[in-house]
Simulated scan of single mutants.
Amino acid sequence: MIEGKGFVIQNTMDQIVEGLYVGSAMAESDAAKLREAGITHILSVARHYPPSHPNDFIYMSVDIDDLPEENIIQFFTETNIFTGSVLENGGRVLVHCMAGQSRSATVAAAYLMQRDTLTAEEAIATIKDKRPQIHPNSGFLDQLQLYYDLNYDVSTDKALYRRFLISHNVEHFKEYGNVGTVVAGLDPSKQTLPAQRLMRCKKCRRALITGANVIDHQAGAGQLAFSYNKRNANGVDTPHAFPQNRACSSLFVEPMEWMDGIRDGLVENKINCPKCDAKLGSYNWSGAQCSCGKWITPSFQIHRNRVDETRPI
Protein backbone atom coordinates (compact mmCIF):
# COMPACT_ATOMS: atom_id res chain seq x y z
CA MET A 1 0.00 0.00 0.00
CA ILE A 2 1.41 3.37 -1.08
CA GLU A 3 0.37 6.65 0.55
CA GLY A 4 -0.02 9.64 -1.75
CA LYS A 5 -1.14 13.22 -1.22
CA GLY A 6 -4.52 12.79 0.43
CA PHE A 7 -5.13 9.32 -0.96
CA VAL A 8 -3.95 5.72 -0.71
CA ILE A 9 -2.97 3.57 -3.68
CA GLN A 10 -3.59 -0.13 -3.08
CA ASN A 11 -0.92 -2.51 -4.37
CA THR A 12 -2.11 -4.64 -7.24
CA MET A 13 -0.46 -7.66 -5.59
CA ASP A 14 1.32 -8.53 -2.34
CA GLN A 15 3.54 -11.41 -1.31
CA ILE A 16 1.90 -13.26 1.59
CA VAL A 17 4.53 -15.94 2.21
CA GLU A 18 7.59 -16.82 0.15
CA GLY A 19 6.44 -17.36 -3.44
CA LEU A 20 2.71 -16.84 -2.81
CA TYR A 21 1.14 -13.58 -4.00
CA VAL A 22 -2.45 -12.36 -3.75
CA GLY A 23 -3.62 -9.66 -6.13
CA SER A 24 -6.14 -8.17 -8.50
CA ALA A 25 -6.94 -8.55 -12.19
CA MET A 26 -4.75 -5.52 -12.78
CA ALA A 27 -1.81 -7.46 -11.37
CA GLU A 28 -2.54 -10.40 -13.66
CA SER A 29 -2.59 -8.13 -16.69
CA ASP A 30 0.79 -6.49 -15.98
CA ALA A 31 3.32 -8.86 -17.54
CA ALA A 32 6.30 -6.67 -16.67
CA LYS A 33 5.50 -6.64 -12.95
CA LEU A 34 4.78 -10.34 -12.99
CA ARG A 35 8.20 -11.04 -14.45
CA GLU A 36 9.81 -8.63 -12.01
CA ALA A 37 8.28 -10.59 -9.12
CA GLY A 38 9.38 -13.89 -10.67
CA ILE A 39 5.84 -15.19 -11.11
CA THR A 40 5.74 -18.52 -12.94
CA HIS A 41 2.11 -19.60 -12.37
CA ILE A 42 -1.22 -17.78 -12.10
CA LEU A 43 -4.36 -18.98 -10.35
CA SER A 44 -7.38 -17.00 -11.59
CA VAL A 45 -10.41 -17.10 -9.29
CA ALA A 46 -13.07 -15.23 -11.26
CA ARG A 47 -16.05 -15.88 -13.50
CA HIS A 48 -15.29 -16.05 -17.25
CA TYR A 49 -11.81 -14.56 -16.89
CA PRO A 50 -9.57 -15.27 -19.91
CA PRO A 51 -5.80 -15.42 -19.24
CA SER A 52 -3.98 -12.27 -20.34
CA HIS A 53 -0.68 -14.06 -21.04
CA PRO A 54 -1.43 -17.74 -21.78
CA ASN A 55 1.91 -18.25 -23.54
CA ASP A 56 4.03 -16.70 -20.78
CA PHE A 57 2.69 -18.23 -17.56
CA ILE A 58 1.07 -21.49 -16.47
CA TYR A 59 -2.56 -20.89 -15.54
CA MET A 60 -5.27 -22.54 -13.52
CA SER A 61 -8.78 -21.05 -13.58
CA VAL A 62 -11.62 -21.31 -11.06
CA ASP A 63 -14.87 -20.08 -12.58
CA ILE A 64 -16.80 -18.48 -9.70
CA ASP A 65 -18.57 -15.26 -8.71
CA ASP A 66 -17.90 -13.27 -5.54
CA LEU A 67 -21.22 -14.14 -3.90
CA PRO A 68 -21.82 -15.60 -0.43
CA GLU A 69 -23.96 -18.41 -1.84
CA GLU A 70 -21.22 -19.64 -4.20
CA ASN A 71 -19.63 -22.98 -3.34
CA ILE A 72 -15.93 -22.15 -3.23
CA ILE A 73 -14.89 -24.89 -0.81
CA GLN A 74 -15.37 -27.50 -3.55
CA PHE A 75 -12.25 -26.13 -5.28
CA PHE A 76 -9.91 -26.09 -2.27
CA THR A 77 -8.38 -29.53 -2.82
CA GLU A 78 -7.58 -28.72 -6.45
CA THR A 79 -6.28 -25.19 -5.80
CA ASN A 80 -4.17 -26.37 -2.86
CA ILE A 81 -2.53 -29.04 -4.99
CA PHE A 82 -1.78 -26.49 -7.72
CA THR A 83 -0.37 -23.89 -5.32
CA GLY A 84 1.59 -26.40 -3.25
CA SER A 85 3.16 -27.98 -6.32
CA VAL A 86 4.32 -24.59 -7.61
CA LEU A 87 5.92 -23.56 -4.34
CA GLU A 88 7.47 -26.95 -3.61
CA ASN A 89 9.19 -26.85 -7.01
CA GLY A 90 10.63 -23.36 -6.54
CA GLY A 91 8.01 -21.48 -8.56
CA ARG A 92 6.05 -18.38 -7.62
CA VAL A 93 2.29 -18.10 -7.94
CA LEU A 94 -0.13 -15.19 -8.14
CA VAL A 95 -3.63 -15.95 -6.86
CA HIS A 96 -5.93 -13.24 -8.17
CA CYS A 97 -9.60 -12.33 -8.56
CA MET A 98 -10.93 -8.99 -9.77
CA ALA A 99 -10.14 -6.74 -6.80
CA GLY A 100 -7.81 -9.09 -4.95
CA GLN A 101 -9.96 -8.94 -1.83
CA SER A 102 -12.43 -11.83 -1.54
CA ARG A 103 -12.12 -14.84 -3.84
CA SER A 104 -8.32 -14.81 -4.13
CA ALA A 105 -7.88 -14.22 -0.40
CA THR A 106 -10.22 -17.12 0.38
CA VAL A 107 -8.33 -19.55 -1.85
CA ALA A 108 -4.97 -18.41 -0.48
CA ALA A 109 -6.29 -18.77 3.08
CA ALA A 110 -7.40 -22.35 2.38
CA TYR A 111 -3.89 -23.19 1.19
CA LEU A 112 -2.27 -21.69 4.29
CA MET A 113 -4.76 -23.44 6.55
CA GLN A 114 -3.91 -26.85 5.17
CA ARG A 115 -0.16 -26.26 4.87
CA ASP A 116 0.35 -24.78 8.31
CA THR A 117 -2.61 -26.32 10.19
CA LEU A 118 -4.18 -22.93 10.80
CA THR A 119 -7.67 -21.86 11.79
CA ALA A 120 -9.62 -19.71 9.35
CA GLU A 121 -9.02 -16.66 11.53
CA GLU A 122 -5.26 -17.28 11.66
CA ALA A 123 -4.99 -17.71 7.89
CA ILE A 124 -7.00 -14.56 7.17
CA ALA A 125 -4.89 -12.62 9.68
CA THR A 126 -1.70 -13.82 7.96
CA ILE A 127 -2.92 -12.53 4.61
CA LYS A 128 -4.35 -9.30 6.03
CA ASP A 129 -0.97 -8.52 7.61
CA LYS A 130 0.53 -8.31 4.11
CA ARG A 131 -2.56 -7.17 2.24
CA PRO A 132 -4.84 -5.17 4.59
CA GLN A 133 -7.59 -4.59 2.03
CA ILE A 134 -8.69 -8.22 1.80
CA HIS A 135 -12.33 -8.81 2.71
CA PRO A 136 -13.75 -12.29 1.92
CA ASN A 137 -17.54 -12.27 1.82
CA SER A 138 -19.51 -13.83 4.68
CA GLY A 139 -20.30 -17.04 2.82
CA PHE A 140 -16.63 -17.64 2.02
CA LEU A 141 -15.65 -17.03 5.65
CA ASP A 142 -18.23 -19.62 6.73
CA GLN A 143 -16.77 -22.08 4.23
CA LEU A 144 -13.25 -21.51 5.54
CA GLN A 145 -14.56 -22.34 9.01
CA LEU A 146 -16.23 -25.43 7.58
CA TYR A 147 -12.90 -26.37 5.96
CA TYR A 148 -11.31 -26.26 9.41
CA ASP A 149 -14.16 -28.33 10.91
CA LEU A 150 -13.61 -30.89 8.13
CA ASN A 151 -9.94 -31.08 9.09
CA TYR A 152 -9.03 -29.75 5.62
CA ASP A 153 -10.61 -32.76 3.87
CA VAL A 154 -13.48 -31.84 1.54
CA SER A 155 -15.24 -35.15 0.99
CA THR A 156 -18.84 -36.20 0.45
CA ASP A 157 -18.08 -39.12 2.78
CA LYS A 158 -18.36 -36.58 5.60
CA ALA A 159 -21.87 -35.80 6.84
CA LEU A 160 -20.91 -32.22 7.66
CA TYR A 161 -19.94 -31.51 4.05
CA ARG A 162 -23.02 -33.26 2.67
CA ARG A 163 -25.19 -31.05 4.86
CA PHE A 164 -23.42 -27.98 3.56
CA LEU A 165 -24.19 -29.12 0.00
CA ILE A 166 -27.82 -29.74 0.90
CA SER A 167 -28.08 -26.23 2.36
CA HIS A 168 -26.92 -24.99 -1.06
CA ASN A 169 -29.60 -27.11 -2.72
CA VAL A 170 -32.19 -25.38 -0.53
CA GLU A 171 -30.95 -21.93 -1.56
CA HIS A 172 -30.95 -23.02 -5.22
CA PHE A 173 -34.53 -24.25 -4.84
CA LYS A 174 -35.64 -20.97 -3.26
CA GLU A 175 -34.01 -18.97 -6.05
CA TYR A 176 -34.87 -21.05 -9.12
CA GLY A 177 -37.72 -23.34 -8.09
CA ASN A 178 -35.84 -26.52 -8.89
CA VAL A 179 -33.32 -28.75 -7.15
CA GLY A 180 -29.75 -28.94 -8.42
CA THR A 181 -27.47 -31.95 -8.19
CA VAL A 182 -28.04 -33.68 -4.85
CA VAL A 183 -25.24 -35.42 -2.97
CA ALA A 184 -27.03 -38.12 -1.01
CA GLY A 185 -26.04 -40.19 1.99
CA LEU A 186 -24.52 -43.58 1.24
CA ASP A 187 -26.77 -46.62 1.38
CA PRO A 188 -25.89 -48.43 4.65
CA SER A 189 -26.86 -51.78 3.13
CA LYS A 190 -23.85 -51.44 0.81
CA GLN A 191 -21.39 -50.66 3.58
CA THR A 192 -19.54 -52.65 6.21
CA LEU A 193 -20.56 -50.68 9.27
CA PRO A 194 -19.15 -50.72 12.79
CA ALA A 195 -21.61 -51.04 15.67
CA GLN A 196 -23.68 -47.86 15.59
CA ARG A 197 -27.18 -46.49 15.64
CA LEU A 198 -29.03 -48.08 12.74
CA MET A 199 -32.62 -47.88 11.46
CA ARG A 200 -34.13 -50.83 9.55
CA CYS A 201 -37.40 -51.30 7.73
CA LYS A 202 -39.83 -52.87 10.22
CA LYS A 203 -41.35 -55.05 7.52
CA CYS A 204 -38.29 -56.56 5.79
CA ARG A 205 -35.38 -55.55 8.08
CA ARG A 206 -33.50 -53.82 5.29
CA ALA A 207 -30.89 -51.30 6.61
CA LEU A 208 -32.02 -47.76 5.72
CA ILE A 209 -30.16 -45.06 7.68
CA THR A 210 -27.51 -44.69 10.35
CA GLY A 211 -27.33 -42.21 13.17
CA ALA A 212 -25.03 -40.05 11.03
CA ASN A 213 -27.88 -39.54 8.55
CA VAL A 214 -30.36 -38.23 11.13
CA ILE A 215 -31.05 -34.50 11.33
CA ASP A 216 -31.98 -33.92 14.97
CA HIS A 217 -33.96 -30.96 16.23
CA GLN A 218 -35.43 -29.41 19.33
CA ALA A 219 -39.17 -29.71 19.76
CA GLY A 220 -41.40 -26.70 19.38
CA ALA A 221 -42.82 -24.21 16.94
CA GLY A 222 -40.66 -22.31 14.53
CA GLN A 223 -38.58 -22.73 11.41
CA LEU A 224 -35.50 -24.95 11.29
CA ALA A 225 -33.45 -24.77 8.12
CA PHE A 226 -31.43 -27.84 7.22
CA SER A 227 -27.93 -26.56 7.98
CA TYR A 228 -24.39 -27.77 8.45
CA ASN A 229 -23.89 -25.30 11.29
CA LYS A 230 -26.40 -24.84 14.07
CA ARG A 231 -26.42 -23.21 17.50
CA ASN A 232 -26.94 -25.02 20.75
CA ALA A 233 -29.20 -23.86 23.58
CA ASN A 234 -26.51 -21.46 24.81
CA GLY A 235 -26.14 -19.79 21.40
CA VAL A 236 -22.75 -21.36 20.75
CA ASP A 237 -21.98 -22.41 17.20
CA THR A 238 -21.63 -26.15 16.77
CA PRO A 239 -21.46 -28.37 13.66
CA HIS A 240 -23.36 -31.05 15.55
CA ALA A 241 -27.09 -31.59 15.61
CA PHE A 242 -29.47 -31.08 18.50
CA PRO A 243 -30.61 -34.16 20.45
CA GLN A 244 -33.68 -35.70 18.83
CA ASN A 245 -36.90 -35.26 20.78
CA ARG A 246 -38.15 -38.79 21.35
CA ALA A 247 -41.72 -37.47 21.41
CA CYS A 248 -41.51 -36.67 17.69
CA SER A 249 -43.40 -39.20 15.60
CA SER A 250 -40.91 -38.96 12.72
CA LEU A 251 -37.21 -39.02 12.06
CA PHE A 252 -35.84 -36.31 9.76
CA VAL A 253 -32.87 -37.47 7.73
CA GLU A 254 -30.61 -36.32 4.94
CA PRO A 255 -31.52 -37.47 1.41
CA MET A 256 -30.34 -41.04 0.88
CA GLU A 257 -29.16 -42.53 -2.39
CA TRP A 258 -31.80 -45.30 -2.20
CA MET A 259 -34.71 -42.81 -2.18
CA ASP A 260 -36.72 -42.65 -5.43
CA GLY A 261 -36.51 -39.36 -7.33
CA ILE A 262 -33.59 -37.89 -5.40
CA ARG A 263 -31.34 -37.76 -8.45
CA ASP A 264 -34.20 -36.93 -10.83
CA GLY A 265 -34.81 -33.45 -9.46
CA LEU A 266 -38.19 -34.24 -7.89
CA VAL A 267 -39.25 -31.57 -5.43
CA GLU A 268 -41.43 -33.97 -3.44
CA ASN A 269 -42.08 -37.69 -3.41
CA LYS A 270 -42.96 -40.65 -1.24
CA ILE A 271 -40.20 -42.50 0.61
CA ASN A 272 -40.63 -46.26 0.23
CA CYS A 273 -38.39 -49.11 1.31
CA PRO A 274 -36.18 -49.99 -1.67
CA LYS A 275 -36.52 -53.71 -0.89
CA CYS A 276 -40.17 -54.37 0.04
CA ASP A 277 -41.74 -51.07 -1.09
CA ALA A 278 -43.30 -50.44 2.32
CA LYS A 279 -44.23 -46.78 2.77
CA LEU A 280 -41.82 -45.10 5.17
CA GLY A 281 -42.63 -41.41 4.79
CA SER A 282 -42.13 -38.61 2.29
CA TYR A 283 -39.85 -35.75 1.33
CA ASN A 284 -40.37 -32.17 0.25
CA TRP A 285 -37.70 -29.57 -0.48
CA SER A 286 -40.15 -26.87 0.67
CA GLY A 287 -40.21 -28.47 4.12
CA ALA A 288 -42.81 -30.06 6.39
CA GLN A 289 -43.95 -29.80 9.98
CA CYS A 290 -42.93 -32.33 12.60
CA SER A 291 -45.51 -33.56 15.11
CA CYS A 292 -43.71 -31.46 17.74
CA GLY A 293 -44.57 -28.29 15.82
CA LYS A 294 -41.15 -27.61 14.29
CA TRP A 295 -41.13 -26.78 10.57
CA ILE A 296 -38.06 -28.34 8.96
CA THR A 297 -36.61 -27.38 5.56
CA PRO A 298 -36.02 -29.48 3.55
CA SER A 299 -38.02 -32.37 4.96
CA PHE A 300 -36.95 -35.98 4.47
CA GLN A 301 -39.34 -37.55 6.93
CA ILE A 302 -39.47 -41.21 8.00
CA HIS A 303 -42.21 -42.31 10.40
CA ARG A 304 -40.79 -43.89 13.55
CA ASN A 305 -43.45 -46.62 13.58
CA ARG A 306 -42.22 -47.85 10.17
CA VAL A 307 -38.65 -48.60 11.29
CA ASP A 308 -36.86 -50.46 14.05
CA GLU A 309 -33.91 -48.75 15.67
CA THR A 310 -30.87 -50.49 17.11
CA ARG A 311 -28.13 -48.82 19.12
CA PRO A 312 -24.65 -50.04 20.10
CA ILE A 313 -24.45 -51.48 23.58
Rank of each mutant, 00 (worst) to 15 (best):
D216Y: 04
D216Q: 07
D216G: 15
H217A: 02
A219F: 03
G220F: 05
G220H: 01
G220Y: 00
A221N: 06
A221K: 05
Q223L: 15
Q223T: 01
Q223S: 06
Q223Y: 10
L224E: 10
L224D: 10
A225I: 03
A225S: 10
A225Q: 12
F226R: 10
F226C: 05
F226H: 08
F226V: 10
Y228T: 05
Y228N: 04
N229V: 06
N229I: 06
K230Q: 02
R231F: 12
N232Y: 04
A233Y: 06
N234W: 01
G235L: 05
G235F: 02
G235M: 02
V236T: 00
V236A: 01
V236W: 00
T238H: 07
T238Q: 04
T238G: 00
P239K: 00
H240D: 15
H240Y: 11
A241Y: 02
F242P: 10
P243F: 08
P243M: 05
P243W: 11
Q244T: 08
Q244H: 10
N245C: 13
N245A: 14
N245K: 10
N245H: 09
R246D: 15
R246F: 15
R246H: 13
C248H: 08
C248D: 01
C248F: 12
S249R: 15
S249C: 09
S250P: 01
S250N: 06
L251Y: 11
F252V: 11
F252L: 12
F252C: 13
V253P: 04
V253G: 02
E254L: 14
E254D: 09
E254N: 11
P255H: 05
P255C: 09
P255A: 09
P255V: 07
P255N: 02
M256D: 12
M256S: 13
E257P: 12
E257V: 08
W258A: 10
W258D: 02
W258K: 11
M259C: 08
M259A: 08
M259S: 07
M259Y: 09
D260F: 07
D260G: 14
D260K: 10
G261A: 09
R263Q: 13
R263W: 05
R263K: 12
R263V: 04
G265A: 11
G265V: 12
L266Q: 02
L266F: 09
V267L: 08
V267N: 07
E268A: 14
N269D: 00
N269C: 14
N269V: 14
N269E: 06
K270E: 13
K270D: 14
K270N: 11
K270I: 15
K270P: 11
I271K: 08
N272S: 10
N272C: 14
N272F: 13
C273E: 01
C273I: 03
P274A: 09
P274G: 01
K275W: 01
C276A: 06
C276P: 03
D277L: 14
D277S: 12
D277E: 13
A278E: 07
A278F: 11
A278H: 09
K279Y: 14
K279M: 14
L280C: 04
L280N: 03
L280G: 00
L280I: 05
G281P: 03
G281F: 04
S282W: 05
S282L: 07
S282G: 10
